[in-house]
């Protein structure tokens, strides 16, 4: 009777011993690598951030030195900052008409791009799929696409103004017609490059055309589609600034044109800075989305 009790006592004593010993032994080495990883992450981040910061600082210094002397046609960075302080600090003011903060101009431009680009993405993927899948559609449409895609975006603007008789739809149309071509062409290439193996699998499993489209075509061609979508978003941001200069109203393009007409060179420089940053963000957004969507396909 007493034997099992003794045994449990022994083990009961033994367990806490190992339990107390274990954390002491394991915790100390764990803490050191964690601090090390943070330090390594910080080093890596610094290695990425510091070089561009140095380059930007150097460029600002050079710019300041060149434009500082009297009679210079462009303002130095210090003057740009002084002139546009109000615009930078309060981007949300709205005095009616086109006298608004930069936020409103940028959001109006982004809205036009969103409409035009969404239409282009839908139409581009649909047409690209058609051209990639059907030999006859390709023979019929491809020459047309190859000619139309070389037309500069702004050349479409007078025609679309004539057709829509309004600035807003015309600008959206220009965005659409600019960004649709790379989406069509890349989607078509992606569809045409779907390996025969995948088509065979679909045939053996007897997927219907709709299932084939959603389960095979879209994922298989996604890397190509996103290449097209990424080129498209870049082109639409290029086109919107130019188009808005001509159509007027609220928008970053017209803001720049208006600043030029009123000789506010500093405001132009500030606007260019914003245009660049937003173009960069849009590009990264589509690239990031593409990475998430094509995770499986790209891995192979």
């Amino acid at each position: 009777m007493s034997m099992p009790a003794m045994k449990t006592e022994v083990s009961a004593v033994a367990i806490p011993q190992t339990a107390t010993a274990a954390p002491v032994v394991t915790m100390t080495p764990k803490r050191a690598p964690r601090a090390e990883t943070y330090a390594r992450m910080a080093r890596e981040a610094a290695a990425r951030v510091v070089p561009p910061l140095i380059v930007v600082a150097l460029l600002l210094v050079v710019w300041e030195l060149i434009c500082r002397r009297a009679g210079s046609s462009l303002p130095p960075p210090s003057k740009v900052f002084k002139d546009t302080r109000e615009l930078i600090l309060d981007p949300f003011f709205d005095n009616g008409g086109i006298d608004k903060g930069l936020f409103w101009h940028l959001s109006a431009s982004l809205q036009r791009v969103a409409y035009g680009y969404s239409l282009a993405a839908i139409a581009g993927i649909a047409l690209g799929t058609l051209v990639g899948q059907s030999v006859w559609a390709m023979r019929g449409l491809d020459p047309l696409f190859q000619v139309l895609r070389t037309i500069p975006p702004l050349a479409w603007l007078p025609l679309s103004l004539a057709a829509f008789r309004d600035g807003q739809p015309s600008a959206i149309f220009v965005i659409f017609i600019t960004s649709v071509w790379p989406i069509i062409i890349n989607t078509a290439v992606g569809i045409r490059n779907i390996p025969q193996d995948y088509r065979n699998v679909a045939a053996v499993v007897q997927l219907n055309p709709l299932e084939f489209f959603t389960k095979i075509m879209i994922p298989a061609a996604a890397p190509y589609m996103f290449t097209g979508l990424r080129i498209g978003i870049g082109l639409s941001w290029l086109a919107i600034v130019a188009a808005e200069m001509l159509i007027g109203g609220v928008g970053i393009g017209f803001f720049i044109w208006d600043a030029w007409n009123s000789s506010h060179i500093s405001e132009i420089i500030l606007a260019l800075f914003y245009v660049g940053i937003i173009g960069f963000v849009l590009d990264r957004l589509i690239a990031g989305l593409g990475r998430i969507v094509t995770r499986g396909t790209a891995a192979n």
């Binding site: 193996d197 995948y198 065979n200 053996v204 499993v205 007897q206 389960k215 996604a222 094509t294």
Partner: peptide, 27 residues
Amino acid sequence: PGPDRAVVFQNHSLLPWLTVYENVKLG
């Protein structure tokens, strides 16, 4: 073609964007 004559292809032909489970589940 049809599932009554299922094929094991030489180069496996698994769909890379689906998991092992989903690849089998498709059929």
